[in-house]
């Protein structure tokens, strides 16, 4: 009787041992590797999409001198997004062309730079650098070397934004000129290039 019981138990153990051998493969492993690289983007504030990146924004100021005439002004606004903790916005302009001559000089054009941030953007991400922290003139932007306009000290985003729609740091530039009778008919032009760089 005991021998039979022993055989029964031995058989059961044998079958239990055999069980795992029938499982051919039972696992899959998915290693997940994520690399987030640093990036810097500038887009047109009025076309804040892929098609609006690295924009060319024309500012046309047409003036006709008159008594009591108001200044002519135009804006170029753009949005900055970066996940880098240090960055800066620089500006440089080309030497002006003047078909008049109009007698206009860069110092006759006032320049006001202001900043703000979207609802998921960090308004403190960047600081305006003197003299751009107050109203200045276009002549503050050199034609020979880039000048710092904004110094960035943190990423522009403060919260997750699943559409990247409201995580921007915006820079508004306003250009104005008074219609002085001193100016002669003609066209005066210059091109300012703003560059976002990470030191």
């Amino acid at each position: 009787m005991q021998i039979k019981l022993f055989i029964h138990i031995a058989l059961i153990i044998l079958l239990l041992i055999a069980e795992p051998l029938k499982s051919f493969s039972q696992s899959a492993t998915v290693p997940i590797n994520i690399n987030v690289n640093g990036t810097l983007t500038i887009s047109d504030a009025l076309n804040d999409a892929s098609s609006g990146k690295n924009p060319t924004l024309n500012v046309n100021l047409s003036i006709t001198p008159d008594l009591g005439a108001a200044a002519a002004s135009g804006q170029a606004n753009f949005r900055i997004r970066t996940n880098r903790s240090t960055w800066k916005l620089t500006a440089q302009r080309t030497a002006e062309t003047d078909t008049g001559p109009t007698n206009i000089q860069a110092s006759d054009i006032s320049l006001l730079v202001t900043t703000f941030a979207g609802s998921n953007g960090n308004a403190m991400a960047g600081t305006l650098v003197a003299p751009f922290n107050t109203s200045t003139q276009l002549s503050s932007i050199s034609t020979t070397a880039p000048v710092d306009v904004v110094t960035g000290t943190s990423k522009t985003s403060i919260a997750r934004d699943s559409t990247n729609g409201n995580n921007y740091f915006q820079v508004n530039t306003l250009y104005s000129i008074l219609p002085d009778f001193f100016f002669q008919p003609g066209t005066w032009a210059t091109t300012i290039t703003y560059n976002l760089v990470s030191p």
């Binding site: 039972q26 492993t29 590797n33 690399n35 996940n83 997750r160 934004d161 990247n164």
Partner: peptide, 19 residues
Amino acid sequence: FRDFVFNPGSYEGQVSYIL
């Protein structure tokens, strides 16, 4: 999502599936 809020760097993880 390619969110600008993510800190640049490398992140590693793993999911294991068992039948």
